[in-house]
């Protein structure tokens, strides 16, 4: 009896979404290592991490929002707005990047708070509120720069930070790791995480259970604002310039990673490590394809199409495991 339940435990662990995704990531890595040119080198792995930091950060904070059953389409635009404000403060305001960075994080928190207020206080649908702020934040960035201003005069130390490494890994990797640990602790080790899930499953039920639903939901959006601002600073350091078009389209890439990572778009279920694996799976796919020289010319289009296919597969596989579970349960009852 105990051995069979243990066996079942192992089986379900292997069938779990994250395990399948991990397998996929490994498969990708081995395949590209065999077929691609210079894939598994320290430099390239550093590149993959550095290039997916901003999207990784956005995905990490998008995940709790989706867990509560919401969505935030404004994070990419907020990244652009924060980058522009940060650049303006450094270049025209004479602030040091540290001070400007602190202010930028506050602005990010305020912008997230704006979304949160409309969503929780006025009970408006997140999709619509953030669709509005998606236009608004990008529009403000364009208005501030009149579209044309580019900020590129930053202290050398700041730019070095964006392209430097610590202990063999890009600086960004450590920040990503720290934020990932933070979000992981929040979601998987505290009651906050459980309340996010509860809200995503049944907001009314969560309310009757005495959870401060509004405050918890607001927290997720404010967190997203702060981390989007952080991503803006890292983006500026890496690309060594700030302009109004920074982060265009990143919201959809972040949602893609989160959903690929097994978080239900309806809320209620999802994991942080799954999200990270989702980010890694997409990043390796696009990097690896461009390293197969025979298809390098069309690799970008291919990786887009394959990502689309992966998304559908990820959803369908979730469905499959549900059917298997249902079938098992039925058989269990019958037997």
């Amino acid at each position: 009896m105990s051995s069979s339940s243990k066996l079942n435990g192992w089986k379900s662990a292997l069938l779990r979404h994250e395990s399948v995704l991990l397998f996929l990531v490994l498969l990708e890595a081995f395949y590209f290592n065999a077929v691609g040119r210079n894939f598994a080198t320290a430099d390239n792995v550093g590149n993959i991490i550095r290039h997916s930091t901003e999207i990784g950060l956005l995905a990490l904070v998008m995940m709790p929002i989706i867990l509560t059953g919401g969505i935030d389409l404004s994070v990419g635009s907020l990244l652009g707005l924060c980058a522009v404000l940060f650049g303006k403060m450094c270049q025209e305001g004479g602030f040091s990047p540290l001070v400007a960075g602190g202010i930028t994080l506050c602005i990010g928190a305020a912008a997230g708070g704006f979304n949160a207020t409309l969503i929780t206080w006025l009970r408006l649908p997140p999709l619509i509120v953030t669709l509005g702020t998606y236009s608004l934040f990008r529009g403000l960035a364009e208005a501030i720069t009149k579209g044309t201003a580019t900020y590129s005069k930053f202290p050398q130390a700041f730019l070095d930070f964006g392209n430097g490494a610590l202990l063999g890994l890009p600086n960004q990797a450590w920040i990503l790791l720290a934020v990932a640990m933070g979000v992981w602790l929040l979601i998987h080790q505290t009651t906050f995480g459980r309340s996010f899930r509860a809200i995503g499953f049944a907001p009314e039920g969560a309310r009757y259970a005495g959870l401060p639903v509004e405050r918890r939901v607001a927290m997720a959006y404010v967190l997203a604002g702060i981390v989007a601002a952080l991503a803006a600073i890292l983006f500026t350091a890496r690309v060594t310039q700030a302009r109004a078009d920074a982060g265009i389209g990143y919201e959809l890439l972040a949602v893609t990673a989160v959903v690929l990572g097994g978080t239900s778009i309806f809320g209620g279920t999802g994991t942080v490590h799954g999200t990270l694996l989702g980010v890694v799976a997409v990043a390796i796919l696009s990097n690896g394809l461009s390293r197969i020289l025979s298809i390098s010319n069309v690799s970008r289009e291919l990786s887009g199409m394959l990502t689309g296919a992966l998304l559908v597969l990820a959803l369908a596989s979730g469905l499959l495991s549900k059917y298997i579970a249902a079938w098992r349960a039925r058989r269990g009852v019958a037997g």
Partner: peptide
């Protein structure tokens, strides 16, 4: 000579940097 052709498919201003950095490690 062998020619590699790659470029951004959208207006993401960071994409060109990423492609160059990938080419560096590609050799």
């Amino acid at each position: 000579i062998d020619l590699l052709f790659d470029g951004p498919t959208n207006t993401d201003p960071a994409k060109q940097n990423e492609i160059v950095e990938n080419w560096i490690t590609l050799g």
